[in-house]
Nucleic acid binder design. Structure first.
Lengths: 192, 192
DNA sequence: GTCTATAGCGCGATAGAC
DNA sequence: GTCTATCGCGCTATAGAC
């Protein structure tokens, strides 16, 4: 088992910085100071900033989607599955000593400043999440634990939107407590 | 009646830029090119960038809250009032030729890069909106047109979060059509 | 109030020694 | 793979002429 290599360390630090400050609020200088190397050394691992961002998005998306698929495949009840899914966002908000938003919520806000390959990655993260939410909601509808009027796809967009938006608002005001209450409120709205 | 003065023009352009690119993605150069003056001339009206941002936030918040108070004070049914409130966010998204998010959703994402006086202004915009949503929801609960389990304050946070978050997601994917469907879905969830 | 010119800094990126 | 040194650029901000 080898120790954490520099490349991974750079990704870790960059992710933390973007989740707090945004892409355009974070710099190679910030990364280098946290990692403990010179900024020119970052270019050895990621020649351009876009290379770093692309690698970061791929890692984040793959990891997140893998966990979500695990939740869906589990033997938990639909209600527990959805709660665990929302718990991923709560965990992100509360990780570290300062409030972090979802990486793709930050990139979504700054979307118009990103190059096309990166925009596509953000887009597919959103789509992957909404697709999984549709599956998750359908499980609950089928076994009778969920009940709501209207379209399942639209309900998935609503839930994903309030999770991504709720994290941003929680950082400015009510904190993780408010975010947790919002999620519980959501559960009440769709439970049968 | 005097014609639009430069100061107002600068605020208009800056607001549009921030709603598309974020605070850290927008520059004095961008503003000067759109307004048609030199960058240094902007400093005549707003000595520091923070002065510009503070004036922008005050104007945006005052204007928005005044409209919302008008909606609340109107003789419309509670359901219509809420639909009109959500319509303000839809109008923002669809104004201009490119998708714009709420000014305070953009600043909320980049909150950790802002100075304290600006953070406070973003915070009070959120609070003002949630307060108005509480009033609006209580009107509907009282006259029986709304019905939902749980706390009204939490429901207000949920709605505000999905509006702010939904706009960000709409820009990347489903557009204003998806955003509109999400709002209609919300109406169905809380109607009695 | 707008202009030209420029200061001073931080950014991403590159070259070349070790 | 990390370092030092540096380039070229864009940024906010200031000084001073008109």
């Amino acid at each position: 088992m080898k120790q954490t290599d520099t490349k991974t360390l750079i990704l870790d630090v960059a992710q933390d910085l973007i989740q707090r400050l945004g892409v355009n609020g974070m710099s190679y200088k910030d990364i280098s100071e946290s990692v403990g190397i010179r900024k020119s050394s970052i270019h050895t691992h990621f020649p351009k900033k876009d290379d770093l961002l692309a690698a970061l998005l791929d890692r984040y998306s793959d990891c997140f989607v893998r966990i979500v698929d695990g939740i869906i495949a589990s033997s938990d009840a639909a209600e527990v599955k959805l709660r665990r899914y929302c718990g991923l966002f709560e965990a992100t908000l509360s990780s570290g000593d300062q409030d972090k938003a979802c990486l793709c919520a930050m990139l979504g806000a700054e979307l118009a400043t990103l190059n096309h390959p990166l925009v596509e990655r953000v887009r597919s993260f959103y789509q992957a999440n909404e697709e999984r939410l549709v599956i998750l909601l359908n499980i609950g509808l089928k076994d009778g634990s969920f009940q709501f009027a209207g379209d399942t796809q639209t309900m998935a967009s609503l839930i994903f939107g309030l999770l991504e938006g709720g994290m941003l608002l929680a950082r400015a005001g009510g904190g993780s407590d408010q975010f947790h209450r919002v999620i519980e409120q959501l559960m009440q709205l769709i439970k049968s």
